[in-house]
């Protein structure tokens, strides 16, 4: 092999690697990390990226150089050099990639083990997933229940998952961590938030008609904010109709102008009077029944079994009354 061609290949490799490096750095490929676990995932990501950039640059350099250098003239009917192989080269490209991928594997295994450790005193949260809503319980705080996930900044959290119907999956992109909630088995996940703010929990396992909008609000607060939130939840200040609408996740599926929601899974809630008339019920009774026993009457065009039937248990009677008043405009 000619020395000059090796130099030119290496030159092309550097050019391709530089272009890729610009693409890798110019765009923010990962969300801004909000957890210690995501910091480590970001590290593995860059470790793998550097290796992959080098490999892809080399491959492209050889293809481009070969096509440029060895392309036959249109009238050239001759054959190339009959090279059948090169044992040293073949051993090389078996061993070097093996070493590189094992390096990625070792780094990944270390990070995986670190990301699974919850420490000695984690905050415990029990997460319940069902079609199509998330709910959270805080066993350390008298099993306080919420439809918003509130976590403490810099406090390791152990989330324990339960799924009531089909498989769902917990993912907050800024946290990096993900875990399926599987009916019949117990799964868990560790997250240590590193900055305060508001995030969105997304279901990432196809779970049925409402999968795309199965989301929940996530807040990371400091210790004072967490104490205040717990107190507020326990004293029931948040039990007004609009608060129940938000914490129940109603807006994920239902459009309701006063709440500014635009969900499309279930019937819109701005014309409840007309729906009640069709159902032949007084407005307040109709709305209450639709919340606690959604399959009793279906607005034409909507399917049975989409709306969870558990709001009668997960919302307190006061919350349901407040919600009915809020929805019927009599609050």
């Amino acid at each position: 092999m000619r020395r000059g061609s090796i130099v030119r290949i290496l030159g092309l490799t550097v050019v391709f690697a530089a272009v890729q490096a610009v693409v890798a750095v110019a765009f923010k490929w990962l969300p801004t990390s909000a957890s210690r676990q995501m910091d480590r995932i970001t590290f593995v990501y860059w470790f793998a990226t550097v290796i992959c950039i080098a490999i892809f640059a080399l491959v492209m350099a050889v293809i481009v150089y070969s096509v440029w250098q060895f392309r036959a003239q249109p009238d050239d009917e001759s054959d190339g050099l009959p090279i059948h192989g090169h044992t040293g080269l073949e051993i090389g490209w078996t061993i070097v990639p093996a070493i590189l991928v094992i390096a990625i594997g070792v780094v990944s295994a270390i990070v995986l083990s670190q990301n699974g450790r919850a420490g000695t005193n984690p905050l415990h949260v029990n997460v319940t997933a069902q079609q199509f809503e998330w709910s959270f319980a805080y066993p350390d705080n008298k099993n306080l229940k919420s439809h918003e996930l509130v976590l403490l900044v810099n406090r390791s959290t152990r989330l324990d998952f339960e799924a009531l119907d089909v498989i769902h999956s917990f993912w907050v992109p800024e946290f990096g961590q993900k875990q399926d909630a599987v009916p019949g088995i117990h799964t868990h996940l560790v997250v240590t938030p590193t900055r305060t703010g508001h995030f969105t929990l997304i279901c990432t396992e196809l779970c049925g008609l409402g999968h795309a909008t199965m989301r929940a609000a996530v807040s990371v607060v400091d210790a004072a904010g967490f104490a205040a939130w717990i107190k507020k939840q326990q004293s029931g200040v948040g039990s007004g109709g609009s608060a129940a609408f938000v914490s129940g996740g109603c807006g994920g599926c239902h459009a309701f102008k006063p709440a500014g929601s635009a969900g499309q899974i279930g019937p819109g809630l701005d014309n409840l009077e007309a729906d009640a008339k069709k159902a032949g019920q007084p407005l307040a009774d109709y709305v209450k029944q639709a919340i606690v026993d959604p399959n009793a009457y279906l607005v034409p065009g909507f399917q049975k079994g989409v709306m969870p039937t558990t709001f009668g248990q997960s919302l307190s009677p006061q919350q349901i009354d407040a919600l009915v008043k809020y929805l019927t405009g009599t609050a």
Binding site: I104, A109, S169, Q177, T204
Partner: peptide, 20 residues
């Protein structure tokens, strides 16, 4: 390209983020 993104997905911590 597909093989190299497969390396990212083979690495468990990255896969946990990128899965689904």
């Amino acid at each position: 390209i597909g093989g190299l993104s497969g390396i990212f997905l083979g690495s468990v911590p990255i896969d946990i983020h990128a899965s689904d």
